[in-house]
Design a protein around this nucleic acid. Structure first.
Length: 393
RNA sequence: GCAAGGGUGGUCGAGUGGUUAAUGGCACCGGGCUGUAAACCCGGCAGACGAAAGUCUUACAUAGGUUCAAAUCCUAUCCCUUGCA
């Protein structure tokens, strides 16, 4: 039996709607997974994620939880689910992205990454094996291989070397992962109908903007064999058109019968464009980070709640959004909260943004099932373009 | 009334003869944020003209004065704070 089961329920062009059954929840795809780096989706209580937004899966981060509180504390607590009380599915990122984003603090070698904690400067070490051990302690439903995230504008040779190491790391990740599963060291083990109850592992395709290298990376990854496949290393400095090109070329070549996960992307528009090109899963910090920093995603695009023009605006962020923030609070009030430094501003806008992302994905799924995704996509993008035009006037 | 110390741009506050249209903080205005080192970061902030380099005008309580040159020195006036009556 497999740890997860993936089934396509409808198609339209390259876009797919499906059902991903994991041991702790059933996840309808395409899905947006809120990012919960440090065992919390910043500013948003689990109650809201469960009840109002009905999020079925959120992320956690190996690097950050490794530094604090440490894998042993979470293992002792019975895993990240028990520790945090999030009972639905979790996907844990491997720490690979931090190798990329904390570049000043690291020393990279074939063996792994020696780095200094960004918190207190402690010397630490992360490798495919260590990452798998931590992720087993966390007990997520979906673990990610430990990869190197290549910068978007990396040249051919750099990218090739990087991708080859990522492939070797993927193999090592898989080996250690299997050992840990066989030893029963996954804290999240759970009996589930027709599933193994074990953790699943996703591979990651790298290759920056070089399509032939992307293809090579994909082949190497598929050869090892994973429960799902991710596209990594996008939205890391390259042009947006490059990102769309890579997705367009690579996603359709990825295994048909496994979920495709585009890591770290993106804006609502990006999500729709990626679904259109065959992607099923997404995560991104934008809804929560932008929420905390005063920018809201709405039907007409993006708005900055700081703007003076909202000072007397008694309307909600978005009339078309069914979330509890839009049903109750005005832009004028949210602006006031933000300008006065009240934490509730960050909480409410983060909440709206996440609700908006999840609702958008719900609509995407519905339209694929109805065969109207093409129209949905056109309307969605048009409203953003109109919004941009209006902003300029 | 006497004595001492003060009055600086929206605000608090540096500056005590010469790159000073005037440091900083805050406020205000705008932009950014894509597997979270981010409740953060960046820019603007006297006025007018200019796409820009820039040009001009008005500015450090008020009015005079000294000087090549003043927010900075001198005189007078107004106002504020503290102490003594």
């Amino acid at each position: 039996m497999k740890p997860i089961e993936w089934k396509v329920t409808a198609r339209e062009g390259n876009a797919r709607a499906g059902i991903l059954r994991a041991r702790r929840s059933v996840i309808e795809t395409p899905v947006f997974m809120p990012v919960g780096t440090q065992a919390t989706v910043k500013g948003v209580r689990f109650e809201w994620l469960e009840e109002e937004m009905d999020a079925r899966i959120i992320l956690g981060n190996t690097y950050h939880l490794f530094l604090r509180p440490g894998a042993e504390i979470i293992r002792a607590a019975g895993g990240l689910h028990n520790f945090s009380t999030w009972t639905r599915s979790l996907l844990t990122d491997s720490g690979g992205f931090q190798v990329f984003s904390l570049t000043d603090l690291r020393k990279l070698s074939e063996e792994g990454v020696e780095f200094r904690s960004h918190i207190n400067g402690d010397k630490k070490f992360l490798s495919p094996e260590v990452s798998m051990e931590i992720q087993a302690a966390l007990g997520s439903e979906i673990a990610m291989v430990f990869d190197e995230c290549t910068p978007g504008k990396a040249d051919f040779e750099t990218t090739r070397k990087s991708l080859e190491m990522t492939a070797r790391w993927a193999k090592r990740s898989k080996n250690r992962f299997d050992e840990l599963q066989n030893q029963g060291l996954d804290t999240g083990f759970l009996e589930a109908e027709n599933l193994s109850g074990r953790q699943s592992l996703f591979g990651i395709v790298q290759g920056a903007s070089h399509l032939e290298l992307r293809k090579e990376s994909l082949e190497k990854t598929v050869e090892i064999g994973f429960d799902g496949y991710a596209i990594g290393g996008l939205s890391v400095g390259e042009e947006k058109s490059v990102m769309y090109d890579v997705i367009e070329n690579i996603a359709p070549q990825m295994p048909e019968d496994a979920p495709r996960y585009l890591m770290g992307v993106g804006t609502p528009e990006d999500l729709i464009e990626a679904v259109y090109r065959g992607v099923d899963m997404f995560d991104c910090v934008m809804p929560t980070r932008n929420g905390r920093t005063g920018s809201a995603f709405v039907t007409s695009g993006k708005l900055n709640i700081r703007n003076a023009k909202f000072a007397k605006d008694t309307e909600p962020l978005d009339f078309d959004c069914p979330c509890s923030v839009c049903r109750r609070y005005s832009k004028a009030y949210l602006r006031h909260l933000y300008k006065t430094g009240e934490m509730l501003a960050a909480i409410l806008i983060s909440h709206h943004n996440l609700a908006f992302f999840l609702e958008t994905m719900r609509r995407v799924r519905e339209s694929i099932k109805l065969g109207s995704f093409g129209n949905f996509r056109g309307d969605f993008i048009n409203k953003i373009r109109e919004g941009e035009k209006e902003k300029q006037n």
